[in-house]
C-alpha cells in the first residue's frame, strides 16, 4: 500500500492539541507499510513523545513540520520546529531513554534556529535521505 520513496509531510500548528493528529498519521503510515503491530504502536508513542519534546522548547508558537519517509521495510521520521533554544534533548534525559527504546535510531539537532528530532524505525537507513522524492 505504501512504497519505498514515498514521502508524507504534515504541517500543524505547534500546539499539543495537534499531537494526536500527528500520532495518528504516523501510525497510519506505519500500518500501511505493513510493519508489525509492535512497531506501529512504538512509532505512535515515539512520534508523540518527539512532538511533545519539541513543543516544550522555548520559541514562538510556529508550526510542527513532520516528514515521514518510507524506506524498504522501515520509515524515517523527522519532526521539526523553530526554536530559540540551543539544544533539544540531553541524552541522559528520560525522554531520550523513551525515544531510544521505541525507535531504532534517534538523533536530534538544532540548526539555524530549527530544532529537529529524527527517528528511524525498521530498516529505514537503506534508502532514507537519498532524496528520492
Amino acid at each position: 500500500m505504501t512504497s519505498p520513496g514515498d514521502v508524507v509531510t504534515l504541517s500543524v500548528p505547534a500546539g499539543s492539541e495537534y499531537v494526536g493528529l500527528v500520532r495518528t498519521v504516523a501510525a497510519g503510515v506505519a500500518a500501511r507499510l505493513d510493519l508489525d503491530l509492535d512497531h506501529v504502536e512504538d512509532m505512535r508513542l515515539a512520534v508523540s513523545e518527539a512532538c511533545t519534546v519539541l513543543l516544550g522548547l522555548a520559541g514562538h508558537a510556529g508550526r510542527l513540520e513532520v516528514t515521514l519517509r518510507v524506506a524498504e521495510g522501515g520509515v524515517d521520521v523527522v519532526v521539526a520546529r523553530a526554536t530559540t533554544a540551543s539544544s533539544v534533548l540531553a541524552d541522559d534525559s528520560f525522554a531520550w531513554t523513551v525515544l531510544e527504546a521505541l525507535a531504532d535510531e534517534v538523533a536530534s539537532t538544532v540548526t539555524g534556529g530549527v530544532a529537529s528530532i529524527r527517528l528511524r524505525f525498521g530498516a529505514a537507513e537503506e534508502t532514507a535521505g537519498t532524496g528520492s522524492a
Binding site: 500500518a31 508489525d36 503491530l37 512497531h39
Partner: peptide
C-alpha cells in the same frame, strides 16, 4: 512476535 497488518488480514480473509 506481533503480526503485520497483512498477516491479520490474511487470517481474517479481508484486505490489508
Amino acid at each position: 512476535r506481533s503480526p503485520r497488518p497483512s498477516e491479520v488480514a490474511a487470517r481474517l480473509g479481508v484486505s490489508t
